[in-house]
Amino acid sequence: MKQSRSNSWLNGDRWLERLLRLAAAMSGCLTLLIVAFVFWQALPALRDPGVARFVSDSVWRPTDETAPQFGMTPMLVGSGLVTLGAVLLATPLALFSVIVAEFYSSRTLAWLLRRVLELLNGVPSVVFGFWGLVVLVPLINAWHPPGQSLLAGILVLTLMLIPTVALATDASLRAVPNELYRSAAALGIGRGAVVWKLAVPLARRGMVAGVLLGAARAVGETMAIVIVCGNIVQMPDSLFDPVRTITANIALEMGYATSGHRAALFATGLLLMLTSSLFVAGAGLLRRRRGRR
């Protein structure tokens, strides 16, 4: 009796395992299918006009009937600058706010700071974009028209990246074992040295991983960028010039794109996917190594 009961329990477990495996396989396959689909759709553009013309063509005029032009250098630069600027601004802000929460504030303040970061993380990007358009863009416009600009994009994106970088960094700082603080205190080591010479170096990998995750998010961000960047395809001369990013370009043109134009957009999508997976993979690698240690 007992035997058969435990058997049926085992069978139930086996079924559950199969179900879980199926679910896992499905989500894995779907991801692969999406990648394959994007690649397949991009393939015509990769063959003709080919990747080289994406950078060598001087203008972006993919809809031209006679001689379509596929120069997307200004958009690549736009994406790169927005990402770089936001990462450069968000990283120190996020690191300092986390270090303040962890080491230099009361429990209440630290709690409050963490909740605010989590809240910020949950704000939809369209809301950030809307806020940027209504508040930030007029301010920049008053300073240096037109307002919708590279700078607006960088600032809005910075706000969005702070929680991403901060929460990942916070996790890695919290993983620093408590014993470290105890043994340092027992040696009479002051807070400054504990923070900067012991805890931060230990958490460094996790911090860099957080920055990479932030960069991955920045590269892919679309909605807020479309709203505040002005979307003019041009090489920006200053922070106040409007720019169009790769993501914004896809969002703006996908609706009406056909054949070669459409394939070119898919090719840029493929590029975005590659870039952000590289960042995510880098972050994963750093975290895994840290775990092993």
């Binding site: 470290l180 043994s183 009479g188």
Partner: peptide
């Protein structure tokens, strides 16, 4: 001052994740 006069060694060895030299030098510098 107290912690300089009264040292402590814990149950689990807890060297810092630094070099052997820096483990000793850091508290001295402090």
């Amino acid at each position: 001052v107290l912690r300089r006069r009264v040292g402590m060694v814990f149950q689990k060895p807890n060297p810092f994740a630094l070099s052997i030299r820096r483990n000793l030098a850091l508290p001295l510098k402090e």
